[in-house]
Design a protein around this nucleic acid. Structure first.
Lengths: 159, 159
DNA sequence: AGTGAAAAGTATAACCA
DNA sequence: TGGTTATACTTTTCACT
């Protein structure tokens, strides 16, 4: 699963994790490589799915999605087929931004964003109705976002 | 805070939230607008910080960061100045990808990624030592990632 | 692998409707 | 605002080290 990355690859990743619009020429000047070498490495990183996507980050508040909830879900693990369909349900629901299956008693942690509490209530009722294995859930509302990102801390690596 | 976005803006955002490499021409063809109209809207969206960044998403596993932890932190709220420095500490720590201040008894929720459990232990010891107001923390390890992203569900909007 | 240069594709900005 | 055109960049591809 881990792919061989040299110093240059890691430096490129550190840069494009912050700004994917940087031209290969600029990146090359920064790390000491020609533009075409940077381009070739970028295609390889995309090819090997080290870079899985290049996306625009939208400010939720400026488009009317100010609410973020951290939701703990307790699930009955007895029926594996229901677990599979729950995962599909989560994956298909746009309001659920992130979801992990975590240590503990059959728990999932969800990050959910909605326009208001009503929309959140509707969503969670739908979740309970359409997934019989969800026993209960516990909601925490984000009062403030300290940090948000998916950046992998490559700059911390030795060398 | 909320900015006026018409149907075209929202369609553009839906597309670039998934793929920021799409050319304005392709986007225009998809939504029925000329390339330059799309470009102009894109610059406006960047200008007004509706789009806050365009970034490459790196697969943590392929670069040797397989561990994700969901960490609940309990904080003494008595001294506000310590709260401020805790927030700064979190913001400055690259291993902490996300952090929210949430409802409950002075709690933060953190999403942390590290190379191994040792690195995680070191990090959390450092957190406790350098932030006197952190009373205790509780760790859940992500056994599986169902979904990961920062996509705002604009496609759900009326019209 | 890396470099450098030509060809193809994109973005940016000025102008008209 | 949206569309069109001209110019400047950027990426892509290819020949060579």
């Amino acid at each position: 699963m881990a792919i061989e990355l040299d110093k240059f690859d890691r430096k490129i990743l550190v840069i494009v994790q912050n700004d994917a619009r940087r031209s290969a020429e600029m990146i090359g000047a920064e790390i000491g490589l020609s533009a075409s070498a940077v381009q070739r490495r970028m295609s390889r990183l995309r090819e090997e799915a080290v870079i899985t996507a290049e996306v625009a980050i939208v400010n939720p508040k400026s488009v009317g999605y100010p609410l973020t909830m951290i939701v703990d879900i307790e699930v009955e693990r007895e029926r594996p087929e229901l677990m599979v369909s729950l995962k599909r349900w989560i994956a298909a629901e746009p309001a659920i931004q992130e979801a992990w299956y975590v240590t503990g008693d059959g728990d999932y942690v969800l990050i959910v964003t909605t326009r208001d509490v009503e929309a959140y209530d509707v969503l969670m009722q739908k979740l309970m109705t359409e997934n019989a294995n969800v026993k209960r859930f516990h909601t925490r509302v984000a009062l403030g976002t300290v940090k948000r990102g998916l950046r992998v801390p490559l700059d911390e690596l030795p060398e």
